[in-house]
């Protein structure tokens, strides 16, 4: 299935400055799987924040559907 991955904040550098990229992943892939397929290992990135599917925050292990937009944020914290 086709997925669009959009990076926000300081993660943009993982796509060489381009905000988004389209990739193919197997059916039933999770957000985690899709990021790995795009070369992003979230656990190895200290400043990794959270993910959202189609504009809604989800757990990193949630599954994707065909045509979904997966957004990954760098950490933000404060008040």
């Amino acid at each position: 299935m086709k997925i669009t991955i959009t990076l926000r904040g300081t993660l943009v550098k993982y796509f060489n400055g381009k905000r988004d990229r389209q990739i193919e992943v197997p059916e039933g892939s999770s957000a985690e799987d899709a990021l790995l397929a795009a070369g992003i290992d979230w656990k190895a990135i200290d400043s990794f924040g959270f993910v959202a599917i189609n504009g809604k925050r989800v757990m990193i292990t949630d599954t994707l559907n065909d045509g979904d937009e997966l957004k990954a944020y760098s950490k933000i914290s404060g008040g």
Partner: peptide
């Protein structure tokens, strides 16, 4: 980077994150 995002965006960075 965990901290310098406030130089790049200030607290406007929270808007999209809170929306999503």
């Amino acid at each position: 980077e965990d901290n310098t995002f406030v130089f790049d965006f200030g607290t406007t960075a929270f808007l999209e994150a809170c929306q999503d």
